[in-house]
Design a protein around this nucleic acid. Structure first.
Lengths: 338, 338
DNA sequence: AATGCTGGGTCGACACCTCGA
DNA sequence: CTCGAGGTGTCGACCCAGCAT
């Protein structure tokens, strides 16, 4: 039909089709003031007719600011997915016309490689969800662009943090168990994952605060169902079976539940289980999971506001600590009489 | 320190710092032939020193091709997350130096809104994972850029499809149950989700082919644990309890398992359960799930190859159908003697 | 004075061409 | 003729100054 492969229409083509200058076409396409209502309709109609679509690359290049916020997150982590959903659902506050650019962290592709493209696109701020990059590396990224860390605690000048109070949250969980009469409470650890160190410490602190320092029992775990299962198997092989198990997060807790029930134990009659996060799965586990709620929608909103504000230099980096809340479902109960 | 906010270094700054022309600096930065080894080292050192980072927007604008493949997927769908991981893990075939751009589909933000930014970035192909856009809309997108549909069947000229044979897969599942002696096999449906219609039909066809046409029983379900739970509750309220339940996917099957066990039934002694997908969770459900395997790594690789090939016009759109495989675990067993 | 509109310069990198050993 | 190097125009849209009413 056409004598060569059809070139995508540009602003010049649009201007031709609408019979006006490119400047005016540009004004209409970006909804800027300075065009009459009649012209606006004419240009929009022409755009529709010729299939014009603004080139984001040229637009972003020409503008002084890219209008982008980068988000690095682990694709296969449901908790991260919840946060990303939250980021999109935030009603863009007036004046915050940032778009989000996702950077996927996947096995074999480190956070570094994920962030590189975000920087090359000149994101004006980067939200890092639960990544364990060394502080030195964070600092260097911070030199190039504002950084908001979500769900990870870091004490470093210039780096913004949005997190739930892990220490307090884990305390709520352990005290809930203690309140139910439990003394033999084991802890399935989260290893190197964000928040794990703080939650582990809180478990220890809380046990000690209630005179149970000598009952502390931490087993290696992780942030997946598999690791929860393995940790529980190890616990059950031991001499003394705990009457309650607290896990680093809900996925691990789900594994704990699974293993206990596979082993023929009843929850919560024989063993109580408590998680952390109040992830979506917590409602549909075999026994609905008692857990500590992190408000992902709120975290997402705060993170986005912080990122936008930092990008526009409306405030300086700081730390936003959100309050966790105990959500009691059915996986915890009174200590069994033995 | 500096008299104004520090401007990001550009190629010009780099050329100054390295004492060469911008052309030469450009050649070095993109690893093109035409620079001596000595120059290369000098420029790279200068880049490191002044913190130069190529501007992706300018680069992409100037090149004739953007070098991007867009990927639209549902953030909170674990099966999609697996596919996205797979897309990144593909060893980029030589010559395929495409980068991936993610477009997140989240509640309240339709596929349309997800795709728009991908088109504005001039992606050279778009991979759509399991979305239910009407065919007419798909065709219109296809006019702008090559389209690869993953895990959804569509008969439309010009649209590339990569999918597992849902009909055959569901047949494997049902025949596995029939082979174990089951006659009363219920089906938890997937509603409007991709593949659901085909799998439902396959359930019906397979039952009929084995003389069980009058035992067909489809209950409304969905693609989540919640919906699996609700569907099963409805099934259990009925008069005749099925001896086996097949579900649209593993998440729904997990809900089925959960509800059965909450109701005090044993799996597979009282009721067998079979899923679809072989998602990650299938191994860690309360009873390891028998299911039909979709090879996400392979689907991802094929999808990426197709997308790259279509972008470069190396081949025309077609349909790639992958073979499903039964994975027997422990949630299925012989029909109980009554 | 305010509104509607136009033209030229520019964002940053690369493609292409030229030139000197 | 090959190889390393430099200069210039361009990708597409937007900003700004300026010109008409």
């Amino acid at each position: 039909m056409t004598e060569q492969a059809r070139r995508r229409p540009t602003l010049v083509d649009l201007a031709d089709a609408a019979g006006c200058s490119t400047s005016l076409a540009s004004i209409v396409m970006r909804g800027a003031p300075g065009a009459s209502e009649a012209t606006r309709r004419r240009v929009m109609a022409a755009a529709e007719r010729i299939g014009y679509r603004p080139d984001q690359r040229a637009r972003s290049l020409r503008r002084s600011t890219s209008g982008l916020i980068g988000v690095a997150y682990h694709v296969s982590e449901p908790f991260h997915a919840d946060l990303v959903e939250g980021l999109y659902e935030v009603e863009a506050p007036s004046g915050d016309d940032f778009d989000l650019v996702l950077g996927a962290v996947v096995p074999g592709r480190g956070v570094e490689q994920t962030i590189e493209p975000l920087l090359r696109q000149r994101c004006e701020a980067i939200i890092l969800i639960g990544t364990m990059l060394p502080v030195a590396r964070l600092r260097r990224i911070r030199e190039e662009t504002p950084l908001v860390l979500v769900a990870r605690r870091v004490r470093a000048a210039g780096i913004d943090v949005v997190r739930t109070d892990d220490h307090d949250g884990q305390r709520l969980a352990i005290e809930h168990l203690i309140g139910l009469g439990h003394r033999s409470i084991a802890y399935v650890d989260g290893g190197q994952h964000p928040g794990a160190a703080t939650r582990r410490r809180s478990y220890r602190d809380t046990m000690a605060a209630h005179g149970l320092g000598d009952r502390v029992r931490v087993v290696a775990g992780g942030n997946t169902e598999e690791e929860g299962i393995r940790a529980t198997r190890r616990l059950l092989e031991g001499d003394e079976r705990p009457t309650a198990i607290a896990a680093f997060n809900d996925r691990a807790a789900t594994g704990v539940l699974t293993m206990l029930i596979r082993a023929g134990l009843r929850v919560p009659e024989d063993v109580s289980v408590i998680g952390f996060d109040d992830a979506r799965i917590a409602r549909t586990t075999i026994v609905p999971l008692t857990t500590v709620r992190q408000d992902t929608a709120l975290m997402a909103r705060v993170a986005r506001e912080r990122a936008a504000g930092l990008a526009r230099q409306r405030f300086v980096a700081g730390e936003q600590v959100l309050v966790p809340e105990l959500t009691v479902r059915q996986s915890t109960g009174p200590v069994p009489r033995s």
